[in-house]
Computed example of a mutant assay.
Amino acid sequence: MGTAVVALGGGHGLSASLSALRLMTHQITAIVTVADDGGSSGRLRDELDVLPPGDLRMALSALCDDSEWGRLWRDLLQHRFTSEGDLDRHAVGNLLIVALWELLDDTVAGLDWVGKLLGARGRVLPMASVPLSIEADMVVGQDQFTVRGQSLVASTPGHVESLRLIPSDPPACAEAVDAVINADWVILGPGSWFSSVMPHLLVPQLREALLTTTAKRCLTLNLSMHGTETFGMSAADHLRALAKHAPTLRIDAILADPSAIDDADDLIAASGLLGAQVLFRQVRRGDGSARHDPLRLAAAYQDVFDRFLGDVGTVSP
């Protein structure tokens, strides 16, 4: 069956790690952020008082079976309507997931049924059982202000000083907590640092599981460090922000593409805050875009799993 891997994140970043991991093992559990408040997900969340389904849909699509059946259902889930009415920009998969939640009155069971439809190579779970909001204290120059909502946190240029969830003590998805406890490896990132990756560390029960699991922990850095919510931050600054919000978290391996790192020495120094060793691997697509190549990322993960060293340090290609 292979290595039991839990991948945490949301959106395109989580899809990237899942697209690689599905080439390595069928024992995959994706744990997905549930704070999205924009687009189709935000509209369904507001209208029906449900978890935002969009990031869950994307994770399921990334795990679909590599067959005509799986690819067709994946494309259907990802299809968006274009109209001048209420259906405009709604994704079919979002509507399907929410309909199953209403029929079954069980969030996890609904996601499992969509996974069966896709022949998914793994399981997709929400990180919490209730919809969440993200609130960030930000600084731009001399100005300090608070931004609330995942879409605003992700799109507001500035430096995030602190991050919190509303509600502050949400119930974690029990199946997600169990998956972390029983994993061989836990993968954090890539993805939007403050709105997709770090929120997992702010759900108390999930955070405790991440701190106490016997699984090894791998942090995957982004290929572009200069997104809106991380404006002006280096790769090392990403690690410092993580250490600030989760000072007792220990990471075993940090996976970084050399082409995305401006100061390798600073990154290695910052990795010490997390007790981690840095592994430099080429995982970018050949076209030079800020997207991970699934085969290269899978090879890098396999190298991390197979060649992980117990002492803190740096492993070169």
Rank of each mutant, 00 (worst) to 15 (best):
K244V: 07
A209E: 02
R217L: 11
S224L: 12
L210W: 06
A270P: 06
L273A: 14
T212D: 00
R217I: 14
A243L: 07
A243K: 12
V153T: 01
V203T: 10
G189Q: 01
S195P: 03
G227P: 02
A235W: 00
D266M: 11
A176I: 08
L223A: 02
D266T: 08
W185R: 02
D263P: 10
S196F: 05
H159N: 11
S151W: 06
L210D: 00
A174Y: 01
S151K: 13
A209R: 04
L210H: 06
L152S: 09
V180H: 03
L219I: 04
D266K: 13
L239D: 02
A270L: 10
G275E: 11
A154M: 04
L202H: 09
S168P: 06
A215P: 01
D257Q: 08
V180L: 09
H200L: 10
M198K: 00
F231E: 14
E175C: 04
D169Q: 15
G189E: 05
V186Y: 08
E208A: 14
A253R: 15
A256D: 06
V186N: 09
D262M: 11
F194K: 00
H200F: 10
L188Q: 03
E175M: 09
A253H: 09
H200Q: 07
I166G: 08
A253V: 15
A235C: 04
E229N: 05
W185H: 05
W185I: 03
L206W: 07
D262S: 14
L219S: 02
D252L: 07
P258D: 09
P190K: 00
A260Y: 07
L202S: 04
V203D: 06
A253S: 14
S234A: 11
E161W: 07
S224N: 15
V180R: 05
D178T: 14
S196L: 12
P157E: 00
G272A: 12
H226Y: 10
V197C: 10
L273F: 10
A256G: 10
G275I: 11
S151V: 13
A235L: 05
G191L: 08
F194D: 00
A174S: 14
A154C: 03
T214V: 06
R207Q: 13
I261W: 04
D265E: 15
C218R: 02
V203E: 02
S168F: 06
V197S: 06
L206H: 10
A264V: 12
N222H: 04
E175G: 06
I261N: 03
H245I: 15
D265R: 14
E229L: 01
P167S: 13
A253M: 13
A235E: 02
L163S: 03
D252M: 08
S195W: 05
I261A: 01
P247C: 12
C173A: 13
A270W: 04
M198P: 00
E229H: 05
A243F: 04
P258T: 11
A183M: 08
R250A: 12
G158R: 03
A174R: 14
P247M: 14
I166F: 13
I251M: 06
T220Y: 02
Q205A: 15
H238W: 01
S192F: 01
S224W: 12
A215F: 05
D263S: 13
V177M: 09
I254S: 03
L274M: 12
S234D: 02
V153C: 05
I254W: 02
A241G: 04
R240F: 05
Q205F: 03
E161I: 09
I181L: 12
S195C: 03
S195K: 04
G158D: 09
